[in-house]
Lab assay of single mutants.
Amino acid sequence: TEYKLVVVGAGGVGKSALTIQLIQNHFVDEYDPTIEDSYRKQVVIDGETCLLDILDTAGQEEYSAMRDQYMRTGEGFLCVFAINNTKSFEDIHQYREQIKRVKDSDDVPMVLVGNKCDLAARTVESRQAQDLARSYGIPYIETSAKTRQGVEDAFYTLVREIRQH
């Protein structure tokens, strides 16, 4: 089974770092803004072998026109913010609204991801993020692309959301 996953969120929150940590098991430290990259990885989730087709997208506003296209083809979405960047957390709402509009559905598989949880300088409390996820009816997972904490959990949870859909 193949799953088309799309990673969305503001610029600099760590979308590529999360994806590369999942696929290649290493942490990319330097920031190089993405336009669009796709990665494929075969994994076993709950005993089922599946192929993850992951689209890593641009957070930069100037590429926002490309969003409709990949939102149409994606089956599930990782909505990523950084726990030390309140603005990126506030941006999640717009991504969710755009996904709902493009998919013409209120019920699209999504996982809210709070990345950079290895950093002490948190400005978005776990509780705020949990409340937001609960209001959307989606899971919330904290990750660190640096330490790998929660990385597999985030992507695998999204696959489970798609399966249950």
Rank of each mutant, 00 (worst) to 15 (best):
Q128H: 10
V108Q: 02
D107P: 05
K146S: 15
D53K: 02
T86P: 08
E161K: 12
V159S: 10
T49K: 06
E62T: 07
V124E: 13
L78W: 05
P33S: 11
A10D: 03
G59V: 10
I83K: 02
V151R: 11
D91T: 07
E61F: 15
K103A: 05
T73F: 06
A145F: 07
A145V: 15
Q164W: 06
F155G: 10
Q130K: 12
G137N: 06
T147V: 12
E48S: 06
V108C: 02
P33V: 06
H26I: 04
D56K: 05
V124I: 14
Q24I: 13
V7C: 11
V108I: 03
A58L: 07
L51D: 11
T86Y: 04
D68A: 06
E2A: 03
R67D: 15
E161D: 07
R127A: 15
D56P: 03
D32Q: 13
I35H: 09
T123V: 09
Q24H: 08
S16Q: 01
D107F: 02
V108H: 02
Q149T: 12
Q21C: 11
Y136D: 08
P139N: 12
Y156F: 15
N25A: 03
S135I: 13
R163M: 08
D29Q: 01
L55Y: 04
V13Y: 00
L78D: 06
C79L: 06
E161P: 05
M66T: 13
A82V: 12
E142R: 11
V102S: 06
S135C: 15
D29L: 07
Q98Y: 13
R160D: 12
Q42W: 05
L55R: 02
S64L: 06
Q69I: 05
N25F: 08
S144V: 15
I162P: 07
R148D: 08
Y31I: 14
K15S: 04
K4Y: 05
L55W: 13
I23H: 11
I162G: 09
F155I: 15
R160G: 11
Q94F: 10
R160M: 12
L119Y: 11
A121D: 09
D131M: 13
Y70I: 14
A10H: 07
A121G: 14
I99N: 10
V102Q: 00
Y140D: 04
I45K: 07
Y3I: 10
I138L: 12
Q164G: 11
L132A: 12
L55N: 14
G76N: 06
Y39Q: 03
P109G: 02
K103G: 07
A121H: 14
A145M: 13
T19V: 03
S126N: 13
D56T: 02
Q149M: 06
E2Y: 00
Q60F: 15
V13G: 14
V44S: 04
D29M: 04
E30Y: 00
T73I: 01
G12F: 15
I162N: 05
K116A: 15
D153K: 10
E62Q: 12
F27P: 03
Q42R: 03
H165F: 13
A145H: 12
I35W: 14
A154S: 06
E125K: 11
T143W: 09
R134C: 10
Y156G: 10
V111Y: 14
G150M: 02
S88N: 10
E90N: 07
R40C: 02
N25R: 03
A10Y: 07
F27N: 00
Q128C: 05
E125C: 08
F27G: 02
K103M: 12
Y136R: 08
T19H: 04
D53A: 05
G76V: 14
Q94V: 11
V102F: 04
R134P: 10
R127N: 10
E2L: 04
E48W: 05
T73A: 08
M71N: 05
D107G: 03
A120C: 13
I99A: 04
F89L: 03
H165K: 09
T1R: 03
V28E: 09
E90L: 05
R134N: 11
I45T: 05
C79A: 08
L18A: 02
G14H: 01
Y3S: 05
L78G: 01
G137D: 10
A10P: 05
A120K: 10
K41H: 07
G12N: 15
K116P: 02
G47I: 12
E161C: 13
D46C: 04
Y70V: 12
V43E: 02
Y3L: 07
E90Q: 06
R160Q: 12
A121S: 11
V44D: 08
K87C: 03
Q94P: 11
L18N: 03
S16F: 03
C117R: 08
D46R: 08
T34Y: 00
N25Q: 08
K87A: 03
M66Q: 11
R134Y: 12
D91L: 13
G76D: 05
E125H: 11
R96L: 10
R148F: 13
I99Y: 02
N85G: 07
Q98A: 06
L52R: 03
K146Q: 14
R67F: 14
A154T: 12
Q130N: 12
V8K: 09
M71W: 11
T147A: 10
R67H: 10
S144F: 14
